[in-house]
Write a protein that binds this DNA or RNA. Structure first.
Lengths: 128, 128
DNA sequence: GATACTGTATTAATATAAATAATACGGTTG
DNA sequence: CAACCGTATTATTTATATTAATACAGTATC
């Protein structure tokens, strides 16, 4: 079985499913563009309602991990697209934070310095 | 009466109280360091439970608007300290957003441009 | 130290929202 | 059209958030 549920876990089922699948994709256990089990088959395998799996898949799609096509199935997002998705989100957060800072009266310089401070951890941008 | 409740409003009472008091402090209606009504007197005035006011006050304290002293009362934070409090928070958010962006592989230039984009906005939130 | 205030913590009741299930709808494929 | 797919809608159940009741603890005044 692809994943297992923990009923001692206080978190909702859909959240457990979401997290476990996300983890498997991050670790490369599920290959990019490969098809995930259908909401129904997975629901049967875990003895729960299909709608709960549907919710987990919807959440994974919202977070950019998978993409779903009506009538076809749900698939693991390419790692390159996934990276783009997450970067877009991160960029948006920077923009919003700067916007809020302006609204509260911080100067341009102060904001840019705050951003630079955040960028300089661990030696900045070193790739391997 | 200092404030009024709107029972057509779907939001919880403590939230209404929190927001109205915060607004009054931002507008300067309540002077800095002045004492707020006690949780009990305000509860009587609004015909609700003291604990609900207590929760509103606790929230205002968490957000830096007021400070409370056991046995003495609750007081409006100096506007200068309040501004500093909020600006510090905003600055922190910018730093964290930039840090996350770096972690996800955005370049320095991209991040700074995202920040600049956020700083360019004219209006901000609208109130009614 | 008695009283009359103040904020705060704990617990219980209740109202609201979240999670899940039942069911129906609409697309794709062979 | 049959057998799969994802998705939307509604209802039911369960969990959480909100409010209330009550008790505790600090400060000031007399």
């Amino acid at each position: 079985m692809l994943i297992e549920l923990d009923y001692k876990d206080r978190r909702p089922i859909y959240e457990q499913v979401t997290e476990k699948l996300a983890s498997m994709m991050m670790l490369g256990v599920l290959e990019e563009n490969s098809q995930l089990p259908s909401v129904r088959s997975m629901a049967v395998a875990l003895s729960i309602n299909p709608n709960t799996i549907q919710r987990a898949y919807a959440e994974l799609e919202r977070q950019g991990y998978i993409y779903s096509v009506k009538g076809k199935g749900s698939f693991v997002t390419d790692t390159s697209k996934m990276r783009a998705f997450r970067q877009k989100e991160a960029r948006k957060k920077v923009t919003e934070a700067a916007s809020e800072a302006v609204r509260l009266g911080l100067s341009e310089q102060e904001i840019l310095e705050a951003a630079k401070e955040g960028m300089k951890q661990t030696g900045g941008k070193e790739y391997d």
